[in-house]
Nucleic acid binder design. Structure first.
Lengths: 147, 147
DNA sequence: GCTTGACCTCAAGTTAGGTTGAGCTTGTAG
DNA sequence: CTACAAGCTCAACCTAACTTGAGGTCAAGC
């Protein structure tokens, strides 16, 4: 059987469903890595597919590329990450995810309660958190927080 | 006791925790409404605070302003929304929120399983959905979907 | 009556996350 | 060996969601 072949950008794009330009972009942001052939073309090892899959899912739930990149720092540099490595990553995200899930549930179930409760002065409404988590973190577009 | 006083932008900004410029912006986007004094200054009725609170919470979970605006279309034009009105709104969002919640749970609980399972060909991985929900909806920044 | 702070408008700038296009190089199939 | 698809780089463009700044108005206190 064929040895573990390396992938071209096009192949990664096909299999992961993201555009080549996005892969270039992720690489520039340090989310994925490649090495080059003699002819300066990118080659990826197979685990890039896992990374990309995680990137997409994480993004879909509102985690920024910067945060994903930060989380990926915990992954090993040289070798292909093991199941354990990935597990650590999801554990690191757990608190943020838990918070997000509870916010979503509140929005889903409790919108009316909270909205109707007359407690709209920000510092008291349970929907809003006293820590002012929405405080700016620089200018520009406001990002979702999963600290 | 004082009658129901109208609020100035500054007051709304203070009480809601969002910048005056953001309130202008929301108004331009049709998310909130005001009328003007003789001197061309904005005055808001109290229920703007509820709207703003919802906007912030909805944003925090990844709903775009456009989607929020669309949902707000269901609110009554002339009168202050009742608890029932708000309830309808959250009901309308329920499916999207349910989906998001399940995605988050998968990410939280199942990252390792899925990542480790070797099923990384997109069309088969349970973390990814076959409907290609990530398909582009125009160019530019990719938005979270809560359809 | 004047000053001070809150408002107003409108244009331009910013960040995130990519896409698009031009111009040039690689690699593979016929 | 020659097409021609795939790659490469780099700069420019795009949307969302705001902020910043310039230049001018309004209103309440002293």
């Amino acid at each position: 059987m064929a040895p573990v072949r390396e992938l071209t950008v096009g192949q990664v794009a096909m299999r992961s469903g993201v555009a080549v330009s996005a892969l270039h972009f992720y690489e520039a942001r340090g989310l994925i890595r490649s090495h080059r052939t003699a002819g300066n073309q990118r080659r990826y090892s197979r685990d890039v597919l896992r990374r990309v899959a995680i990137i997409r899912v994480a993004q879909e739930v509102g985690i920024s590329l910067a945060e994903i990149a930060a989380a990926f720092q915990s992954l090993p540099e040289g070798r292909t990450p093991t199941r354990e490595d990935w597990n650590l990553l999801s554990t690191a995200w757990r608190d943020g995810l838990d918070h997000k899930i509870s916010q979503l549930k509140k929005l889903r179930d409790g919108l009316t309660d909270c909205i109707g409760c007359g407690c709209m002065s920000i510092d008291k409404c349970p929907l809003r958190n006293k820590e002012d988590r929405l405080a700016r973190e620089g200018t520009g577009a406001r990002r979702l927080l999963v600290p």
